[in-house]
Design a protein around this nucleic acid. Sequence first.
DNA 1: ATTAATCTGTTGAAAAACCAACAAAACCGG
DNA 2: CCGGTTTTGTTGGTTTTTCAACAGATTAAT
Lengths: 188, 188
Amino acid sequence: MDRRIKKNQAAIMNALMQLIAEKEFEKITINDIAERADVNRGTVYSHYSDKYDLLDKCIEDQLTHLMESCYSADAKGPFPTKTPLLHTIKEIKQNAPLYKTLLSIKDVSSFRIHLNSMINKQIIEHMNETNLSIDDLSKSIFAQFISSAIVGVIEWWFNQSMPCSAEELTDRLWSLLEMNQLIPLKTN
Amino acid sequence: MDRRIKKNQAAIMNALMQLIAEKEFEKITINDIAERADVNRGTVYSHYSDKYDLLDKCIEDQLTHLMESCYSADAKGPFPTKTPLLHTIKEIKQNAPLYKTLLSIKDVSSFRIHLNSMINKQIIEHMNETNLSIDDLSKSIFAQFISSAIVGVIEWWFNQSMPCSAEELTDRLWSLLEMNQLIPLKTN
DNA sequence: ATTAATCTGTTGAAAAACCAACAAAACCGG
DNA sequence: CCGGTTTTGTTGGTTTTTCAACAGATTAAT
C-alpha cells in the first residue's frame, strides 16, 4: 500500500484514539481529528466517510492488534490454553479506559459486536481446521454461544469496574469454557 | 509551509540523527535514511542535494533548537548571566554522543564552524543593540575572539571526555568571560 | 581484474495530499 | 425562534510524494 496512505491512516486513527480518551465521542469533530493528526481535513474524508466510519475502522484495527499480540505470544487457535486468554484480558485491562469507552459508545456497529464476531470467527475457523463431524448449524450455534459468553463476561467485568483481578477472571472464565468442552475440542 | 514538506523534512532529519548515533557517517547511505524516515528515496533528493547537504541542515536545525531552548529559559542576548551558559552546556552534555560525532565529522562545513558563527552572530547582534561607541572592526574581532574561545573550550571538553562537570566548566568559562569584560558589556 | 551487487542521482507519469472555497446542515445564545 | 457561528461534506486546481526504471559510479568479493 502507498506509504502516504499507511502513514496518514495511522495518524488519523491514532488521533481519534487520543481524543476518545480525552472527551466524549460525540463532541469530537472532524476538525479536531485532522488537527491532532496533523493532516488536511479533506484527507480524513478521503479515507473515511465520517467519524462513525472512522471509529469502526479503529475498532477493527484495535481488535486485530489485540488478537495478534495475544496469539503470537503462545499458540494458535482461539484459547487453546489458558495463557492467551489471560494475555487478552490483561491487554484489555491495560487499555481499560479506551475499551470501556469503546464498549459504551452507541450509534456504531459497536465494539461489542466487533469483538464478538472476531472471536466467533476464530472459533469457527478452528473448528473447521480440526475436522470434526459436526454439522454447520451446530458449529454456528456453538460459536455464537461461546463468543457471546466471553464478550458478555468481559463487558460485565468492565461495567462492574473490574471487581476481580484479570487472573481471577481468567480462571473462572476458563473453568466455564472447560465445562463446555471447549478445551478438548481445541487441543489438537 | 506545506504540511507534507514540514513532516517529511522532520522525519528525514530525525532519521539521520538516529543513524549518526548508530554508525559512522560515511557508512550511512541515502537508502538508509529514506528507509528509516519511511519516505521515498526521491523525496530525500527533492529536499537535499546529498547527505552532506542534509547533515548541514541538520546541524543548523540542531543549533537553532539549542539556542532557542537556552535563551527562552532565562534572558536575552548571548550569555548575559551565567544561567543560560550553563543551560547550553548541560544541553550539549545531554546529547553528548550526537554532538561529539558532529564535532568530529570532516568533509563538512563542520559543526564547529556552525556553532562558532552562531555564537559570533549573537554577540555582534547584542553589541549592536546596546549601542556602544565601538568601531565595526573592533566588534568583529572581539566577537570572533570570544566565540572561538567558547567553542574551543567546549571542543576541548569533549575531546578530553568531559574531564569536569558541566557546572565547573561553566564556572571557569564564566570567569574568563568576566575577565574579558563580556558581562558589563552585556548587562544592559 | 572482473563480476556482481549496491548506491547514486535523475526522470516521468500516476497517486495522494494540500488548500481554499463553497453551500447546506447543525448547533448555540439571546 | 432567530441570527451568528461552527461543522459538515464536497469540489477543483496545485503541489508534493510515490514508485519504477534508468545509466553511471562505487564498493566488495572472488
